[in-house]
């Protein structure tokens, strides 16, 4: 995707700059941007290390098993078809937990594992099963408890209150997840009738 977008961005910006007379601004922005990237990454580095470290502690403890248990009733509701498949349910739960803790690097391999297990019990191998649809939709929504990336960006830009956005983020995430799940349920029901 970015192989197309990135050159378009650059070409459009540079060509337009020549016509609009903003070449001087573009010229200075080139070097300013690289400086910004370094500054952001440095601030970023601290927050990311701290948070990944904390989350690794959680991940290695039995706290995770407890949360998996807590998620069980929700998973039952969302994935009625695989209720008897204990292994798949556990994989889905682990993926959700990794997402909740913001461990994207752990969440994706766990999610791929869950997808492969669901494919094994999928009747039409070229089409997403109901459970798979629900699983992907939940992964496209943000379950993350603490939006660390955003907090890191806000910190690097000297915000007065970098964490002020935590509660609003929860509100927006919950609304978007509920709607996405509802739309998915509607799609699943419709296909059944046909």
């Amino acid at each position: 995707m970015l192989n197309i977008l990135w050159p378009i961005f650059i070409i459009v910006a540079f060509v337009y700059a020549f016509f609009s007379g903003n070449v001087d601004k573009v010229n200075s922005v080139i070097f300013e941007s690289t400086k910004n990237a370094v500054e952001l990454s440095l601030t970023f580095l601290g927050t990311m290390c701290l948070w990944n470290g904390i989350m690794q502690i959680a991940y290695k403890s039995k706290l995770i098993d407890k949360i998996v248990k807590l998620l069980n009733p929700i998973i039952k509701k969302l994935f009625p078809e695989i209720n008897k498949e204990k292994k798949i349910k556990k994989e889905i739960a682990m993926n959700m937990v990794a997402n909740i803790f913001g461990l994207g690097n752990a969440a994706t391999p766990l999610g791929i594992k869950a997808m492969k297990s669901m494919q094994e019990v999928n009747e039409k191998k070229d089409t997403l099963s109901n459970s798979m649809m629900m699983f992907i939709v939940i992964n496209t929504a943000s379950l993350q408890l603490i939006p660390t990336t955003v907090i890191a960006i806000r910190t690097s830009l000297n915000s007065n209150n970098p964490t002020a956005i935590v509660t609003p983020v929860w509100g927006a995430s919950i609304c978007s997840i509920i709607i996405a799940v509802m739309v998915t349920k509607i799609i699943i029901k419709r296909k059944k009738r046909n």
Partner: peptide
């Protein structure tokens, strides 16, 4: 899992994004 038919899942996810 090499699946081609995605049954309108993109729509569901994007509606969720817009609402968010």
């Amino acid at each position: 899992v090499k699946i081609k038919k995605t049954r309108g899942i993109l729509m569901a996810a994007l509606i969720g994004d817009i609402v968010g």
